[in-house]
Design a protein around this nucleic acid. Structure first.
Lengths: 139, 139
DNA sequence: GCATATTTGCAATATTGTTGCAAGTTTTGC
DNA sequence: GCAAAACTTGCAACAATATTGCAAATATGC
């Protein structure tokens, strides 16, 4: 399995404590992370600014992708497939649970294509489904 | 055509200057509006707080709906169809233009249903397509 | 190991969102 | 149309979130 080190090197990034730790967190988390989660889970070991910059770098490199939400926050999740710089393949559906508030990448559910009106040229599509997730449904 | 007055009355809301003006702005705008746009376009005639509260009220009543984005902001747009309180019908696709940055409600394009993994129960789905819009494509 | 390039932390600042409360406005019932 | 009740607004204070420049620290290439 690919380690944080591999990921950083593959993307030509300097290997630093901060980047390793944040990547570790992503690798250890099933769902998506908000900026706030990352600050909490690294025990304030890093400056807030570093977290912002690290996330931005990862997004630019295609290591993580952003998930839009309706509550003025952005969620981040690892790209499971190989995403080249500036060319993401994160075209899977995201599920936000109304119960436990977790966001899950449904890697096997691809965003369906839609027919747009004339002269609209689509480049990227995102889809967010909310409801009750597997875990909450069973319990 | 339905005026701002009709909309307010239909929803049992007090008719105030602020609500009328903000509704006017929505009725006059084709695309979606960010909170910042609303503050700007009302000439700072209202307190920031009033704008926040008015938008919240409109969302609660189903007069406008929220559109998720990936840049830490939420966009708002009028519900074209009759949305009952707590029961929105805004299941159309939203298009964000990378060129002019406008967000357009594609009222005629409905969000397609997707097949979710076992035990996931969907309640709501949103879809955002980005690319080049009609206007920018032609010019 | 050293020079260069990159990254980090700090401080300052800007932006955005929230809450309580008193004053003002709208609606209701007559 | 008027008074009382209900609701809405603005202000002030505050909290949270995001951005920038710059010097110090760290990582990389040779």
């Amino acid at each position: 399995m690919e380690t944080q080190l591999d990921i950083l090197k593959r993307n030509g990034l300097s290997v630093t404590e901060g980047r390793k730790k944040i990547l570790d967190l992503f690798l250890a988390t099933e769902g998506a992370l908000a900026h706030a989660d990352i600050e909490k889970n690294t025990d304030a070991a890093f400056d807030r600014v570093t977290v912002y910059r690290t996330l931005q770098t990862f997004v630019d490199k295609g290591i993580i992708h952003q998930i839009p939400t309706t509550d003025n926050s952005v969620l981040y999740a690892l790209c499971k497939h190989n995403c080249a710089q500036g060319h993401h393949h994160d075209n899977h559906v995201h599920f936000i649970c109304d119960e436990c508030d977790k966001t899950i990448c449904l890697d096997d559910v691809t965003v369906p294509a839609v027919k747009l009106p004339k002269d609209f040229e689509p480049l990227h599509a995102a889809m967010i489904v909310s409801g009750i997730c597997k875990e909450c449904k069973v319990n």
